[in-house]
Design a protein around this nucleic acid. Structure first.
Lengths: 162, 162
DNA sequence: CATATATTATAAGCGTGCTCATCATTCAAG
DNA sequence: CTTGAATGATGAGCACGCTTATAATATATG
């Protein structure tokens, strides 16, 4: 395409950044009454799907570092969303369970998130929504694939690590 | 095939979050050699467009709080990307200028960002890219519009949400 | 002049991500 | 059992966003 990238593609990063930030902000404004951040909500979805999940597994699924999970779980335990239980079989492991409060609020928060999505998509046609989702999924897949070398050398150390 | 329109819409927030995070990560992996974060890059773009811009104006344009600009500028001054100069006319004001280093690196970093965009869009057709950008712009506009009061009363929402 | 208000920048402290380092526990080898 | 590597969780400290509060300066008004 000789058309230049300036049909908006050059602002793609800023756009994605803005939309993510605004969406998170709006969700948190709605959920603030419940005292739940978006990061905490993402974690809660995983815990609801798999009660007793370990922190290590959460880190893997959420694609954040185990230490970040530790901190998140700390605060969520403090605010009564989840609880840690020891695993009798492996005492290194802390299993994460939703509290009754979390189970009760789950459906409400989910529909609250749905409202934010719906509001953000006002004026976007059903077919464009499908294209949007498909494009975002493709992008996530492309970006999740291995980094094609930062310029100099690829094979530093971590080839077999993961 | 298509069961319902909400094919994935319920994961919109997670998708946007993932794409933004991965895109930022990849950019920063490339730019790490230059010691520039994506937040710093966003600020640098503004400073390049308007040398001598004030911190208050940067906060407004970047839609972040003035204190966040202070900290960003602190670090960028420390690492030699920008410099603060006092305004003779108004001694409250600190005017921000790019350093020679910043001016020299600008084009390189810009093309680096373009590479990340292009990689992320691999496999997305030109027409789908246009739809994507248009949809994201619509979403940003929708979300930037006045929050319908974070309390309990949401009067103007179209009532469409599940 | 004195004082009240607005504006610009910064300070303090928190949430959520990171890296690097540490501790406890498990497991594999000897 | 002892040693050593791997694994799960956490601590320390940093980046970058936030809110709330302050300091310094500018400006409007009595």
């Amino acid at each position: 395409m000789q058309l230049m990238v300036s049909d908006g593609i050059d602002r793609l990063g800023f756009l994605i950044h803005d939309v993510q930030r605004l969406m998170r902000k709006r969700f948190e404004a709605r959920a603030s009454g419940l005292g739940l951040s978006s990061a905490q909500w993402r974690l809660m979805v995983r815990v609801a799907k798999e009660e007793g999940i370990t922190q290590a597994r959460l880190a893997e699924l959420l694609e954040i570092e185990p230490i970040s999970v530790s901190r998140l779980v700390d605060r969520m335990e403090d605010s009564g969303w989840i609880e840690r239980r020891s695993d009798a079989a492996d005492r290194r492991v802390r299993m994460i369970f939703p509290t009754a409060k979390a189970s009760q609020a789950y459906a409400e928060i989910k529909s609250l998130a749905g409202e934010v999505y719906e509001e953000s998509l006002t004026g976007v046609s059903p077919q464009d929504r499908r294209v949007l989702i498909k494009a975002l999924e493709t992008m996530a897949r492309n970006l999740a694939d291995g980094e094609p070398a930062p310029g100099e050398k690829i094979e530093s150390a971590e080839g077999a690590a993961a």
